[in-house]
Design a protein around this nucleic acid. Structure first.
Length: 284
DNA sequence: ATTAATGTTCAGAA
DNA sequence: TTTCTGAACATTAA
């Protein structure tokens, strides 16, 4: 569920509670659901991390990365419905993991909660982490690209630009919701092929990406109608009220006013766009 | 009962 | 080689 702005919000919300604190122990929650995917197995992770101090908490694309004083990294992929929380979770049944902190200072715990349970938790040694980074399975962070990066990355391939935006090996952090919002602000039709885009298009994509993602971070992410996403304090985000196209098929465009928002399916996922703002130019 | 949902990965086909 | 499709993972709500 969470994309870059939601993960960034969770990390910012949880960081003050954990930075410099010792992890007393990791406790699997007594939830009635199937276990998450752990690598290596949870017992091994617990042994390696017990009594270690949390040196850093960071976001890498859509992933959450705990760095311990041993330089081990615990990488959490929230996937569709995972949340990192300081407070009590939305419900007790899908609580997956408790990070019990040492010492008397509140909070005493932070939590990983995941309703659908598609999330993954991976422990990597310092060396394995660096090797993983070098494998290029994750492109540069969406907030770190300049216009030249955009051109270089997307002119090597020739795919519909919306589908390319979702490929984390090209650019890390953009998901299905923000891809539609970014393309709308950039006035680029989602079915345009990347090879047909010109430098002016990449300039607008660059500006729109920074603008939309930073604006969404300011609003603490989007809580959609299913209500799953919450910030670290189990409160709603606010960006869902600012969406220009996502999940607004048939409604008036908030930019041009036309009843022109369409929904199409690309790579088995919904894309929303305004037919008036985003013309289907050459190179479809 | 059916469908779709903010994500990722894999196999196999085009 | 690159691109594309479908399925899989698991759960819930419209």
């Amino acid at each position: 569920m969470p994309e870059l702005p939601e993960v960034e919000t969770m990390v910012r919300g949880v960081a003050p509670a954990v930075l410099g604190r010792m992890l007393h122990e990791l406790v699997p929650a007594p939830c009635p659901c199937r276990p998450l995917t752990f690598s290596p197995r949870l017992a091994t992770i617990r042994r390696r991390l017990a009594r270690r101090t949390i040196a850093d908490l960071a976001r890498v694309g859509k992933r959450i990365v705990f760095r311990f004083d041993s330089n081990d990294r615990l990488v959490i992929e929230p996937r569709m419905t995972g949340l990192l929380l300081v407070s009590d979770p939305p419900d007790p049944d899908h609580l997956r993991l408790e990070f019990r902190l040492a010492g008397r200072r509140a909070p005493h715990s932070v939590y990983f909660w995941d309703r659908r349970g598609l999330g993954t938790i991976t422990l990597l040694s310092d060396r394995a982490w660096n090797e993983w980074l070098e494998q290029g399975r994750l492109g540069p962070d969406a907030l770190a690209l300049d216009v030249e990066d955009w051109v270089r990355i997307f002119q090597r391939i020739n795919r519909p630009v919306k589908v390319a935006l979702l490929d984390q090996r090209l650019v890390a952090g953009i998901g299905n919701l923000y891809a539609s919002e970014i393309l709308h602000r950039a006035r680029v039709h989602p079915e345009r092929r990347t090879l047909s885009l010109r430098v002016a298009d990449f300039r607008r994509l660059h500006e729109a990406t920074l603008h939309i993602l930073n604006e969404a971070i300011r609003y603490e992410g989007s809580t959609l109608s299913d209500g799953t996403y919450r910030n670290a304090l189990n409160q709603n985000g606010g960006y869902q009220n600012e969406h220009r196209v996502y999940d607004r098929e048939g409604e008036a465009c908030r930019t041009c006013g036309a009843i022109a928002i369409r929904r199409i399916v690309q790579a088995q996922r919904s894309t929303f766009f305004c037919r008036a703002c985003q013309p289907a130019a050459r190179g479809r």
